[in-house]
Structure formats: C-alpha cells, structure tokens
Write a protein that binds this DNA or RNA. Sequence first.
DNA 1: CCCCAGGTTGTAG
DNA 2: CTACAACATGGG
Length: 250
Amino acid sequence: MLLNLRLTMESGQPPEFLWQKQGSRYFRMLDTRAELWQDGSVLRYRGCSGEYVHRLLRLEDRLEEVYEVLCRDEALARAVRRFRGLRLTLSEPWETLVAFLCSINNNIPRIKRNVQAIMSLAGGRMPAPEVLAEAELKHARLGFRERFIKRSAELVAEGALEGIERLEFQEAKRELMRLPGVGEKVAECVLLFGYGFLEAFPVDVWIARAMQEYFGVSRSRIESFSARWEPYQGYAQQYLYLLAREELKP
DNA sequence: CCCCAGGTTGTAG
DNA sequence: CTACAACATGGG
C-alpha cells in the first residue's frame, strides 16, 4: 500500500499540528497515548485501532487512480513524482477547525505551538468546545485569533457543527462560514481535512502563486479551473501546495 | 527599522 | 464587485 508517512504527517495538514514527533515516530493523546510509525514500508501503530489509522490516513483512497487524474498536467505530474505516497488525512472536525483558526496569517511552526498550547489545557487532548469557550488562553499567545477561537467555540458548543457532515459541499461551506474567523480558505480546509470532502480546494498564498505560475490562472478563476481535477481537487491542492513551497519561494 | 506567515474582517471606492 | 489596512505574535 502506497504511503509516505513522513510526508503525510509533515505537510501542513492537521496531523502536523495535532501530533508530535519523537525520533521517527508520531504520537498524541487519544483515549491513551497513540503512536504511529513506518517500519520500512510497513505501517505500525500502538494505542489506537487499525480502523482509526485507516481513517486518519485515508487508506481507502486509491492513490494510483488519483495520480491518473492529476498527471494530465505537467506541474502536477512533477509533484506526483516528487511526493509519491503523500496522502490526504482526516482528523476530527472540531480539532481541525481549531487548528485552522490558529493558522490565520500565521506560520507553520507557530501554528503548531499554538495548537499544542491549547491542547496542553486538557492533558494533550483537544479541549471540548464548551471548555475552550471558558478557558484562560492568554498563555497560548494566539494574538487576534484568540477572539475568533473563543467565539467559535461558544457557537460550536451550542451545536453549530451538528449535521454538517450530511450536507452538500456548498451548503456545508456556507454553514461553516457563519463562524467567526472562518472565511473561504479556513472553511475549505475544515471541509477537506475534517470532513473528507475531496472536492474542497483551499486557496492560500501558495496555491494562488502556484496557479498563477503553473497555469496562468488568477485568483478569481481558480475555482472554476480546479474542476479539471474532479473529483480529486483536494489532492491536487495538497500536491500543488508542497510543490509551490519547494519551487516558488519568493 | 523592515518584511512575512496555509487569512478574515470591516470599510471605502 | 474589488482594494486595502488592521489585526498579535514571533522569526529573519
């Protein structure tokens, strides 16, 4: 089974913020301490079920089928050669939302510090929304994001996320965007990494750069252009993101 | 001192 | 509709 665990866990997806690295293994607190690593090409885990790992790493996705769609374009074919085995991940909606609220106008190392600081409030687990809504967060040094997180936590505690997984993509997106701090980009990230909508295509500065440089497509035309990768827009986005970070450093 | 970071929001044109 | 400053914090 095709998997590059390091790329998958360290590619700016929620696991990069929610899990910690120890040597070549990854760990986090679930019910107990869970651990994840690769032994040669064999995936190993401890402290969680095989079903959990299967869902987290989306092992049901047929990567070769995804690659067939992406490789119609030269830039993406290059990304696939370079990042073969990179998979999309699926985390819990609530913790995915918190992670991407932390990501706003922030950089990856600091997003991780912010998320880990929040989780340190609950022994390394993501605090429940009603807990976070009342928590003292000054120590987490979230800056202007603290207000977004606390106000969103209140709404989620009142049920703002209930039933979203059963909605169509566009409607789910509209619902998420009712939350403070959730604009287009954060909404699409939560839909992709927290709900598993593969048609999501979050546009950040790197994707905007990649689309301009590789395809000559401006920001306003990205959404319609990305339909060429249907139904795997989310995978196209993740591969383009890493490619841009490698090739298009300004 | 400057600039930037997996953006969002409010305001102005 | 588009453009743009402000928003905290930390690193280069």
